[in-house]
Amino acid sequence: MKLIAQRLALGILLLLAVSVLIFVGTELLPGDVAQAILGQTATPEALANLRAELGLNDPSYVRYFDWLGGVLTGDLGTALSNGQNISEALGKRLSNTLFLAMWAAIISVPIAILLGLVAVQHRNGFIDKLISATTLTSISLPEFFIGYLLVYFIAVELQWFPSVSTVYDGMGFADRMSAIALPCATLTLVVLAHMMRMTRAAILNVMQSAYIETAELKGLSPFRIILRHAFPNAIAPIVNVVMLNLAFLVVGVVVVEVIFVYPGMGQYLVDHVSKRDIPVVQACGMIFAAVYISLNIVADIVAIIANPRLRHPK
């Protein structure tokens, strides 16, 4: 329990540190925010007015604590470029991103682990090599290439699923699933190999242990040994790599979003960076950091729970 509390506290501390980094980082971006908003034709008076309005004349630590206070109370401020409420606009984008990531994970994680288990059972045999070869091929192709292949064959030639994955409120569940089919497939192909290889390696590692030999001598079936005896002891590294890939599914999908025109966080962030819309960039940065850190904490906690030695420390 103490260990878990410690991890949580560390996570929060880390998030605070990240918030400082994000704030400093955005301060360092070249170009004046007021100038970026008003454009080339801005008069000096208008610039001065806007700077005062945005509080840009305050010292930076004051602005940092103002901003942090807002973030802690759930108020991310308003976008400088179009005056939209960031929490509202971002909430929609975030839920889209999470929706896509969730379905990609629901499909890819069980497949990856199952393939890993099968590969271990047939280790060094034809099936193992086939699984490794296909998943490694799919991870080696750049994701935009996989995306375009799927668009060409499945959307344009066969017309099974749409190439444009725009989702919106009030869309039926079936339509929504059909819309995300192709990006979801692309992401699955991209993350599959990493998780599958890690599962395979971790279980093979455990398979060297003496107690596996005992189990074999007891006459248990090979798949049962892998599933009941080896897998639980290999959970920690597997969960770690699964979490890493989940984090990628949330924060690293800009390219896939662009190809399939999916209204997620990535495109939203890129648009606002180019407009120097600092509050939005900061908000996105914080959310990405929070996702990364919390998924890692989950991985840690699962590892602790899975390991009796960590669960019952002396």
Binding site: V151, Q159, P162, S163, V164, V261
Partner: peptide, 8 residues
Amino acid sequence: ARTAALQG
């Protein structure tokens, strides 16, 4: 993506 959307 734009061309594919028109084609599809």
